[in-house]
């Protein structure tokens, strides 16, 4: 069974999904971050693979993508890293990035690599569901990879039904029109955008029922993304959907936490050195491990500061 489906079977509320850009802050941080988030109790991880021209992303994720590419990240390296944690990581993982990167890698090769590396789903914002259905649906199905659709506040009800019928695992609900990381609160009830008018229940959550476009009734879990940046916004999103997705705020933390800087000048001969307060540095020269930062972050989001 797909790990995303299993997750939502076991738990239908307060789902926390965290996005990070692979190759950021450093090329080889991917597995440290995954392990950190998994141990900290995140429910789902979205691994962003960087693209030079991320048009749906705001400044924070743009900058992390740019740095990741400078660090040398590419899909060969990323799949290599992911294959190393195949045995140890059990958390559902989703790959997220732009279509050109996948297209050049080879869509078939990409999906097979996802399947081999323990990836459960894929989000490609600029691959419209229509094109997916025409060209790649069978490929995804045969390899057990979920194609996850986005729904925006502008999406009309009929199209929400259409997207619900295509999306697998969950529906990614954008809380607002915008690029990632914009710091505006959810100005309106995010769930309104998935209502079909006749079936929405005020304050309702859990799997959301919509009228199917292909004739079979189905429900699908929902996660709200964009603009979620602290415990309050996370909690509010969780009242409206099965959970929420945090991306830019986590990247911002990785950027702003000065303890994470890998400062070679402070290293001693054994390659590690000590921090000002006498703690030993991590192997990569940091004053604190990525794992600790992940734990602090997840705790803050779940419980508040």
């Amino acid at each position: 069974m797909n790990r995303i489906d299993k997750l939502f079977q076991q738990k239908d509320h307060n789902i926390l999904s965290v996005y990070f850009t692979a190759g950021y802050p450093e090329l080889n941080d991917t597995n440290l971050i995954i392990k950190g988030l998994e141990e900290a109790g995140a429910d789902l991880i979205e691994i962003g693979f960087p693209f030079s021209d991320p048009v749906a992303d705001g400044p924070v994720i743009q900058a992390s993508s740019h740095k990741a590419l400078e660090n040398g990240m590419n899909l060969d390296i990323l799949f290599g890293q992911l294959s190393e944690i195949l045995e140890t990581s059990r958390i559902p993982k989703v790959m997220m990035g732009y279509f050109n990167t996948v297209y050049q890698f080879g869509v078939i090769k990409f999906i097979k690599a996802c399947s081999r590396c323990g990836i459960s789903g894929v989000i490609i914002p600029d691959l419209p569901p229509e094109v997916y259905l025409d060209e790649y649906h069978t490929l995804f199905e045969e390899n057990g990879i979920h194609f996850i659709c986005l729904v925006s506040p502008q999406t009309p009800p009929e199209r929400v039904e259409y997207l619900t019928s295509i999306s697998k695992g969950f529906l990614y609900i954008l809380s607002m029109s915008g690029t990632t990381g914009a710091r505006v609160g959810m100005g309106r009830d995010a769930l309104l955008c998935v209502s079909t008018g006749e079936r929405v229940t005020p304050g309702g959550k859990r799997a959301h029922a919509v009228r199917p476009y292909n004739g079979t009734p189905r429900t699908i879990p929902t996660l709200i993304g964009f603009g979620i940046h602290n415990h309050q916004s996370f909690a509010r999103a969780c009242q409206q959907a099965n959970g929420a997705i945090i991306g830019s705020e986590f990247i911002r933390r990785l950027t702003d936490d000065r303890r994470l800087m890998t400062d070679g000048r402070l290293m001693t001969e054994d390659g590690r050195g000590v921090t000002e307060d006498g703690r030993r540095r991590t192997e990569d020269g940091r004053r604190v491990s990525l794992g600790e930062v992940c734990e602090e972050f997840v705790n803050e989001i779940r419980r508040g500061k």
Binding site: F51, L69, L75, N100, T101, V102, Y103, Q104, F105
Partner: peptide, 19 residues
């Protein structure tokens, strides 16, 4: 052939599809 700015067309890019 690649995908940039909403359409599939020729594109100057590296082997990983970075423009």
């Amino acid at each position: 052939t690649g995908i940039l700015h909403g359409s599939k067309s020729y594109l100057i890019q590296d082997i990983y599809g970075q423009v």
